[in-house]
Amino acid sequence: MTDAAPASTGEGVAAPSEPGTPQAPEPGTPQAPERRADELAFPTRESYHDLVASYKAAGFEMLADLTGVDYLSHPGRALPPGIQAERFEVVANLLSLSLRRRARVRVQVPEDDPVVDTLWDLYPGAEAMEREVFDLLGVRFDGHPDLTRILMPEDWEGHPLRKDYGVGRVPVQFKEAPGPR
C-alpha cells in the first residue's frame, strides 16, 4: 500500500514513519525542523533479537519504549518488501545517548503464534514494558523472567487492547439501580 493519505489536511506530508526506505531516515521530507526522522527497521521474528543486539552494540544504550499494536482492522499498512504484515506488531523504540538518535524496530507477530523473543537480556528495563504488552495485547515474550499481568488483575480474561476485545458498556442505571435498603 502506498501513501493513501486522506487529502484533507496533510498535503501529502510524508510522516517520518512511512517507510519508503526502512533502514535510513528519509532525506528531504517536509517536516518540522526540530524533528528528525527516526531510523526504522523491520526485522523478521527470527532476526529481531539479533538486530536489536546489533543496535545495542552500535551505541543504542537504552530501550526507551516498547509497545505493541494490534493491526486487526487496519491491515494495509506500508511495510518494506519481504516483510509480511501480521496481526500484531511489537514496536521497540531504541535510544542512543551517545549518538543522540532514535531507532524504531517493528517486528511482525502472527496471530496464531503470538510469541517473540524478549529483549530483557539486552535491556533489563524491558521487563515492565514487555509485561504490559503481554497483559494488554497477549503477545508472549520468550525468555522473559516474569511474564505475568501487570496492569490488569491476575484472573482477568482477555487482553483489552486487542481490537476484537469488546469495549463493554456500563448500563446506565436509573430506575434499576438498587436502593440503599
Binding site: 501513501d3 493513501a4 493519505a5 486522506p6 484533507s8 489536511t9 496533510g10 501529502g12 506530508v13 510522516a15 517520518p16 514513519s17 512511512e18 524533528r35 527516526d38 526507551a64 519504549d65 499498512r77 506500508a78 514496536v91 523504540n93 532514535r102 524504531r104
Partner: peptide, 12 residues
C-alpha cells in the same frame, strides 16, 4: 474531528 494521514510517529 479532523482526519490525520496514515502513518505512525513516536515523539518524546
Amino acid at each position: 474531528g479532523f482526519r490525520v494521514p496514515e502513518g505512525e510517529a513516536y515523539v518524546a
